[in-house]
Structures are given as structure tokens and as C-alpha cells.
Design a protein around this nucleic acid. Structure first.
Lengths: 335, 335
DNA sequence: TTTAATTACGTAAACGTTTTCGGATTACAG
DNA sequence: CTGTAATCCGAAAACGTTTACGTAATTAAA
């Protein structure tokens, strides 16, 4: 009750050495079961928990990982965090969260501040505002890292992604099958492999069906929400597309709003589908056809990979892990 | 380049003592500006960052706070985290995340594991499955804590909440004004003050307008989603209410689904409003009238309060901070 | 019985900081 | 020239662990 309870205190009360207590607590083979039990029961009795700072300092292990993502207030990332946390919990690890807000400067500032032994490893989904390959090429040698969803290529680390190209191809074909011939593309993540893969899947599907991808039919994402709404409205007025393929969730609200304001009926006048992890997609007016990434599983898998690295396992494993997204057809692309 | 760069290394290269380097890095008044500059430039040159474990151990400060919440994959909490992180960043603090999944056992396990100096303070929104006041009464004496949204009463700590009673009262009146006379209540967070305040606001508003709150009109939240849908359907079949007041976001999907399945038109046959932080509320079919809590601001304010405590400020301040939710009227309660 | 191996524990040095205390130097007033 | 204060810096002890190494006691092998 009185005074802080540390390993020295345990040693005194049991009349054994500090070293023995430490070893007993860590279940070392050097200590007899009898002594271990004495230590364990007293530790529990006094509610002893080891001081993390002292432990980290001496052992160079923190039992902590960092998650660096653009933003937690995004369905994909919050689900991914949930997946990460589940695994971390199983391993008894703590999880630090850092939000970059799509800013590579922040990203570098965070990672740099983590290189001094604050964490054992890093999980990250990189920012979209810049392509920063060189920086990461250096970084991955300094600390165990796993990338998920938004990755850099050609890094010798585990990377967990989804089949962006294939699912975009499939989704585009779905629109074509529904009779669309002038499919506009709402382009996000342009500077990242994921974003380009999605766009390429769309382009190739168009081409395979004798349609052509025109730059006039592409709306590029703007951080200013008002711009996105305006740009989509302009797209409708100038090009009159019969479908919108949205590559990121952030386009959904301006897309629907634009249709409302221009009195376009979905799906009669225009069909819409989007990459999306909102649980409310099926309640939209009309319900939205989505490409849904397995966000929770991605986080889960990425965390598992990181722990493989931390535990020196999985040396020979394939480091490119690709999970499948699913196309969920709903009313917004319906007949 | 070679070897780890620590304070000793800096001292050697500059031919000064370790103590001087440490003090210079911390901008101590004991060190001349000239020496400070020498230290600072070399530190920058060698990319020196202090070892957190050593620093924590010696100084008993971690520059880290913990956020303990039910789940990150919830719009309210992910926004709150965003608000928390913003403030933490300003103070140069790191943020640990723990998810309880509404389990008080988890909650206690997490908090207990944080009492050994892993963090300087805790921000939390408590779990709903149990009312655990006694435990927290003890806890708040052991570590700086701030509660937000889901709080325990009568604790001498900062508590950041919203005007649950008042906004529920107002929202109920809105339904009454729209002509509803049989308003059902979808009851969540029953064991917490927030949940009870919402219910009370609803009850009192009914009473003030000559309506009565019947237990038959209350659906209690179940963790099994299928149950919620079924219970709402049963409610409609047995009671035929003309409005649903949903006290938590989780009821929205089953409520809308039930209406779809029973072919009830919103808002003609039944009006619906809900506590909700989904950005897509206005895109639902029909758009949803919501009580929206200022989630980001709540996180922001809670974090500010915690830093007040950590910096020994705000002693005389009012510790009950109440922010205003807003009722956003949309089609689901429209004429 | 002697020797080697095994078991169980202790000693003490680390880990990289922060901080107390004291010492040396300089400046300045008397 | 002396005494006092201010300024700047260093020595060394912490902080609570982990761990390499040593050692005594016991057991097994010869």
C-alpha cells in the first residue's frame, strides 16, 4: 500500500535478490517453480506491474507499435484500426495513432520521431499528396514497417493491398453491362499506385469494350469539397455522362448532391458506383452500388505481418499480400 | 553515422559534459547561449532525438496520453479522436488508443495497465454494458483523467458532455409539432447517464404535451443486430407508432430496413429521427433528421481539459463542460 | 570418491536520460 | 585588493529494469 511497488520492493519482502525477482516475473528457466510462485503471488497481491520505461530502456523493446494513417475519421481507416488493434491486443502490444491529414511533411515528421526506440514497428497507409518513394526506401531499413492499402512499390517489406485493378475492371464492366457508354471517372489518389491501378482498371475495361477513356470525362479530386461538387456539376452540364465511377468515398456526397441539384435521376439518367466502406450505403437514395474493401481484414493482416517481422518469422513468405474487394450491386446501377 | 547517437556522443564530440548537453537541449538557464547553439547545431546535424524510455524513466513524464473508447469504427468516436489528436499534436504528445468493445472488464484491464507510468493521463468514454462508478472513484485519484460524452457522475474530474436531456426534449417536441402522437423510443446506453438523460428528455417532452411514455413503445438495444431489426418490426406490428426516436446511431439501419420490409413510407407513415454523426445522413432515403453531437469539438475540449490538469492549470474552472448538440431537420420528419 | 554437469540464485553493470549539488570563473562593488 | 554575486559548467547519483557472469549447492557420471 505504502510507497511505489517495484521490483526492489518485491525482492525485499521476499528476501531474495532483484535479479531473481526479475527472472521469476519473466518466467525464466533459471528460477525454481517454488520461487516463481512466491514472486507471482506477491506481485499479484501488491498489484505490481513493471515500469515500462525502465523495461524499454534496458531491453530495447517497447511492446508498442505505431499506426500512421491519413485520418481516423474515415470508414476504411477506422475499420482498419479495429483490425490492427485486435491483433495487437493478442500480442499484448500497445497502439499509437498518428494522423497525417494527407501531408507527407507530417508523415516524415512522425516517422522520424519514432526512430529513437519509441515503438518496435510501424504500420502505415501513406499520404496522397505526394509520391515519396525515396524517403521510404531509406526508412524501411531503420525500423520494421508494414504498408497497407496505400503502399509504395519496390520496397522490401510486407505490403497488404487489395485487387484495385481487377475490381475496377469488373465494376466498369458492370456499368457497361447496364448499358452505360459514357462513363465518367471521379479520380482520387492519383499519385499513389492504388489510385492509378483503379484508374487503369477502368480504362482497360472501357477499351476492351470498344469505349474510350477521355480526359474530359475525368474529375480530379480537390481537397476543397465545394470544388468537387462544382466540378461534377460542370461535368454533367458539359459532357452528360450516363455513369459515374467514383474511386474514393469522398466523392459520394458531392456526386449525389450534384444529381439532386441538376434533377438527374439515379439510376435512370445516370448510374453511380463508388469505392466505399460506409455501412449506410444501402440506405442511400437510391442505395449505392459499392466496391467495398475488406478494411478490417486488411488491418488484421497487416498487423499479423508486422508481428511476423518482429518475431523474426515469415522470412520466406510472399511479401505482397493482396486481398479481394467485393462489388456489391445495388439500386444506383440498377436497371 | 556510425553508432547510435545519444547524449554521450554529443558530449564527446563537443568536449563538454553530459550534463551540459542535457541542459542545453532542454534550454536550461544554466547554459550559455553560445554552448546551447553548439549543442543544437550538432544535435540537428547528427539527427539526434532523445531516447524516450530513458527520459521517461528519469523524469516520470511520458508525453503520452491514452484514449479509451468503445470502438474507433464509430463516427462519433473517430471524430472525437480526431479532435483529441489535434490538441495532443499541439502539445507534442503521443496518443495511445484502446478499444473496449463496450466491455468493462477490458476497460479495467486497460486502465490498470496504464497506472505504472506508461501515460501521463487518460481520456475516456466509458462502456455501456455496466455502470462501474465505484471503480472509477478510486481510479481518478491515481492518474489524471478526463471523461467525455459517456461519463460517470460525481467524480471530481473534468467531464465533457452534451445537452442530452435538452436536445432530446427539443427533438421530441419537433416530432409532436409534426403531428406525431405515438412516438416510439429506441433505447441505447441505458446504463449510462447520457442514455438516461436522452430518455428522460423524451419522456418529459411527451408528458408536457399530454402524451404518455409507454414501456410498450420502447425498444431496448441488443448487441445482436438481427434482434434489433426484429424488435423494431415487432414494434410496428404490435403498436403501429407514428414516429421513432432513435437514441443511438446503431438503430438507424435496422429502423430503415424495418420500414422497407414492412412497406412503411417515411415520413408519411412513420417519422424517424436519430442521434447520428454519419456524414451521409442527408443522402439517406429519405434524408434523416438527426441530433448531431459536436464530436470533434468534444474530443478537442476534453483534450484541452486534460492538458489543463497535466499543466496544473484550471484549478478553479467549472469541471462540467456541456456542449450543444444540434437538431438538423430533414425529410424523415418532414410533412 | 572424484569430477563434471546441472540447478538455483546473487552481484553488478548496463540502458540513456535528468537533476542535485558543488566548483570554477568572471564581474563588480567596496 | 578583498568579498560577494552571478554565471556557467561538471561529477555523480539516481530512475527501475534486464542480463552477463559468477558461485554455491546439488545431482549425475566416472
Amino acid at each position: 500500500m505504502s510507497g511505489e511497488v517495484n521490483i526492489k520492493r518485491l525482492a525485499q519482502e521476499l528476501n531474495i535478490s532483484i535479479a531473481t525477482v526479475s527472472k521469476a516475473l519473466n518466467d525464466s528457466y533459471e528460477i525454481s517453480l517454488k520461487t516463481k510462485n512466491r514472486v507471482w503471488t506477491l506481485a499479484k497481491e501488491l498489484n505490481y506491474t513493471p515500469n515500462p520505461a525502465a523495461s524499454n530502456l534496458r531491453s530495447n523493446k517497447t511492446k508498442t507499435i505505431a499506426v500512421i494513417i491519413p485520418c481516423v475519421a474515415n470508414n476504411f481507416f477506422s475499420l482498419a484500426i479495429k483490425g490492427i488493434e485486435e491483433i495487437a491486443r493478442q500480442y499484448g502490444y500497445h497502439v499509437l495513432i498518428y494522423q497525417t491529414h494527407e501531408d507527407t511533411e507530417m508523415e516524415m515528421s512522425f516517422t522520424n520521431s519514432l526512430l529513437n526506440g519509441r515503438v518496435d514497428g510501424i504500420l502505415t497507409s501513406v499520404s496522397s499528396n505526394e509520391y515519396n518513394n525515396e524517403y521510404y526506401k531509406n526508412l524501411v531499413n531503420k525500423i520494421p514497417m508494414v504498408f497497407f492499402d496505400r503502399v509504395y512499390e519496390e520496397l522490401d517489406t510486407f505490403k497488404v493491398t487489395t485487387d484495385d485493378y481487377q475490381i475496377s475492371y469488373t465494376a466498369t464492366e458492370h456499368l457497361i453491362e447496364q448499358g452505360c457508354t459514357k462513363i465518367a471517372y471521379l479520380y482520387g489518389l492519383e499519385k499513389l499506385p492504388a489510385g492509378r491501378a483503379r484508374f487503369l482498371g477502368y480504362c482497360d475495361a472501357l477499351q476492351a469494350h470498344g469505349l474510350l477513356a477521355a480526359e474530359d470525362l475525368v474529375v480530379h479530386y480537390s481537397e476543397d469539397e465545394a470544388n468537387n461538387l462544382q466540378n461534377i456539376k460542370t461535368l454533367f452540364q458539359q459532357q452528360a455522362p450516363d455513369a459515374l465511377f467514383s474511386s474514393i468515398e469522398e466523392f459520394i456526397i458531392p456526386a449525389y448532391s450534384a444529381c439532386q441539384e441538376l434533377q438527374l435521376q439515379i439510376p435512370k439518367d445516370v448510374k453511380i458506383l463508388s469505392f466505399c466502406n460506409m455501412s449506410s450505403a444501402k440506405l442511400l437514395n437510391p442505395s449505392l452500388t459499392t466496391i467495398t474493401q475488406p478494411a478490417f481484414e486488411i488491418g488484421n493482416e497487416a498487423a499479423k505481418c508486422l508481428f511476423k517481422v518482429l518475431n523474426k518469422r515469415g522470412i520466406g513468405d510472399d511479401k505482397d499480400i493482396v486481398l479481394q474487394s467485393t462489388l456489391i450491386k445495388r439500386a444506383s446501377t440498377g436497371g
